[in-house]
Amino acid sequence: MMGLEQKDWPLMFELTNKVLGSGDPEYQTDIPEAERGTGAAARLTAMTGFATMFAYFRERLEERRANPRENDLITLLLESEIDGEKLSEGDLLAFCFLLIVAGNETTRNAISGGLQVLCEHPEEKAKLLKDMSLLDSAIEEILRWVSPVHHMARTVTADVEIRGKTLKAGDRLIMWYPSVNRDEEMFVDPYRFDITRTPNDHLAFGIGEHFCLGSGFAKKELKVMFQELFRRFPDIDLAGPPERLRSNFINGVKHLPVKFTPER
């Protein structure tokens, strides 16, 4: 989508892991082994990831400035104007960074988390395999269940009372998506994984001004992925316990051992 060369994809994988999975010792590869797993190690890992990513995109911006490309997102960003002004170098880098990070970790953990929860609920998986027209609503339930993003934060701008709790202007608050997506006032039997759940008004993509820019695209990616996966490997199943990401921000599965009959 961003027009990056395929040879750079493993680097993007490594860097998005470092930035969003900075607290997980597995990704703290620049830290001596004995010192991994600490807060300092996490900060350093995130900073290295950030710095390398920004340097990488600075080169991509230079490339496109010298040789603008057709149908290219980065060229489009370079040429766009808001109120007659071009985006600053900082804005351009920040947006490239946001797109690669927000588009990667989230969707890929929705895929791994979705496969995991389907395999853990064989009756729901069988229902889906028998009738793939349930895929759209299964994806909504996967998004609710997995809530790939754990939280976003807000700063309160005016004093307000919500359900007897007073929030003061300037307070910082955390919105926990897995919690809101299991709100028993919003969802009947919230701890049941039900691929036909209706209504399913989950907030896995947030709400309001910053509602996920990529929600439609992410759902399309999930759809294509599960369609192809189950078409080619209908007997895919877990082959061991998943290894989860250590993070309070991303609900990630790092490794998900599976078994399946290969295509002939």
Partner: peptide
């Protein structure tokens, strides 16, 4: 009413 409530951009 439900659409109004669900619209992410209000």
């Amino acid at each position: 009413n439900r659409a109004i409530r669900l619209c992410p951009r209000q």
